[in-house]
Amino acid sequence: MSGTNTHVPSVLSAPLPSPVPSEEYDACPVTDVLRRVGDRWTLLILILLGRRPHRFNELHRSVEGISQRMLTRTLRALERDGLAARTVYPTVPPSVEYDLTPLGRTLLNPLSTLADWAVDHGAEIATARDRHDAHSPPPSEQSA
């Protein structure tokens, strides 16, 4: 953030080379996190785990349309990133519970801010899309 103007968002005040090398963009921690939370299921799983710990089958029943394989992949990715933790309890049969880690919990406030922004501006975005689509030729007629 600029020392003279504290109202400049950090995404605007960070220096960027021109052009931005694709390798640098791909290696950016912001790009990495947005890819993680922007996939189809991660945001919903983070929200559910943010409310309370869940067992695998509880999560599976709570998310319509997610396959067991995709839930497993999503949970493993969250574990790998240190955002979720898997706890195995020594019962017969063993029970497994998933919860957010302290690091995962720190992500809830920024995600809430983004979600609030999306809800506040969703109608404006829909209107802009409709206006744009009304003035754009069909995809089959657009040139590359």
Rank of each mutant, 00 (worst) to 15 (best):
S2G: 06
T4Q: 15
H7P: 01
V8G: 00
S10G: 05
L12Q: 04
S18G: 04
S18Y: 10
V20T: 05
P21M: 02
P29G: 03
V37R: 06
G38Y: 10
D39S: 15
D39A: 14
T42G: 12
T42V: 15
L43N: 07
I45Y: 01
I47E: 15
I47D: 14
L48E: 00
R51C: 06
R52A: 11
F56Q: 00
F56R: 04
N57C: 06
G65N: 09
R73E: 14
R76Q: 15
R76S: 13
A84C: 06
A84L: 06
A85H: 09
T87G: 08
P94G: 08
Y98G: 01
L100W: 02
T101H: 04
T101E: 05
L103D: 06
G104I: 04
G104M: 05
T106M: 13
L107S: 09
P110N: 10
T113L: 15
D116Y: 09
D116Q: 14
A118C: 12
T127K: 09
R129E: 14
R131A: 11
H132Y: 14
D133K: 06
A134L: 08
S136A: 08
S136I: 08
S136F: 07
P137D: 06
P139D: 04
S143P: 04
S143Q: 12
A144Y: 12
